[in-house]
Amino acid sequence: MDPTQTGTTRTGTGPRPGVGVSGSDRPRLARHVRLTFCRTRQRQTLQLPETVVVLNGSGADILELCDGRHTVAEIVAELGARYRTVPDDEVRQFLTRLVARRYVEISDG
């Protein structure tokens, strides 16, 4: 999944084209997106209208914490506690791509 960056959708502040997520942002799944476990694939998936995105383990772990309450920094810290090393920039890039695709919405912290 490597979408071109067309901008980000942010609640409360309007779009900020070309800007990634910051540590104080609070990501959450967009209203039309559901994180579910697919028994057939034995993996977490994102379900969207007419689309299913199969997630790898780390992507699913990130999105499970995207509830609008956790900041990006808190998500990185939680994953770091679970797995020892979590590259902060990779989590931000992943979330930035999902925001660009409108799978995730961001509110300012």
Rank of each mutant, 00 (worst) to 15 (best):
T45N: 13
T4G: 05
I75T: 13
A30K: 12
V54W: 03
R102M: 03
V76H: 03
T9H: 13
E105K: 02
G109I: 03
R97S: 07
L95Y: 05
P87V: 04
T11D: 14
Q47H: 07
P49E: 11
G57N: 12
T45A: 11
R102Q: 15
G57W: 05
D89L: 08
E74F: 01
D25R: 02
L46P: 01
V91K: 00
V33K: 00
C38T: 10
G23I: 05
G80S: 15
Q93P: 02
L29K: 10
L65R: 14
F94N: 00
L65P: 03
Y83K: 10
R41H: 14
T13M: 07
L98T: 00
T40Y: 08
D88M: 02
T36G: 04
P15D: 12
R102P: 00
D25F: 04
A81D: 14
T6H: 12
G80C: 08
S22V: 09
L95R: 08
P49G: 05
R97M: 05
D2E: 08
R97T: 00
V99A: 11
G7E: 12
R16A: 13
D88Y: 05
I75G: 01
Q47T: 10
L98S: 00
Y83E: 05
T11F: 13
S24F: 08
T96L: 00
V86D: 06
F37Y: 15
T6N: 10
P49I: 04
V86Q: 13
H70P: 01
N56P: 03
S107M: 06
R92V: 11
R82Q: 12
N56S: 12
V86K: 06
L35E: 07
E74L: 03
G57M: 04
T71W: 09
L79K: 08
V91I: 15
T11M: 13
L63W: 01
T96R: 15
G57P: 03
V76L: 02
S58V: 12
T8Y: 04
V86M: 15
R92E: 11
R69I: 05
D88K: 11
P27R: 06
R16I: 14
L46K: 05
V52L: 13
E105H: 14
T85F: 12
D88N: 13
Y103R: 04
V21W: 00
E64P: 01
T51C: 11
D2N: 12
L98V: 01
E90A: 14
D89R: 10
D88C: 05
L35W: 02
L98A: 08
I106R: 00
R26W: 06
C66H: 11
A77K: 11
M1N: 11
A73K: 09
V72D: 04
T9I: 14
G7H: 07
S107W: 04
R26N: 02
Q5P: 02
V91P: 00
A60N: 10
T51E: 15
V104G: 02
C38D: 15
Y103I: 13
V52G: 01
T9C: 06
R10F: 07
R28W: 04
L35Q: 06
S24C: 03
G59V: 03
T13K: 08
G80H: 06
G23S: 11
G68V: 08
E90P: 01
G18R: 03
F37C: 05
T9S: 13
L63M: 09
T36Y: 04
A100R: 00
T51Y: 11
R69Y: 07
P27E: 03
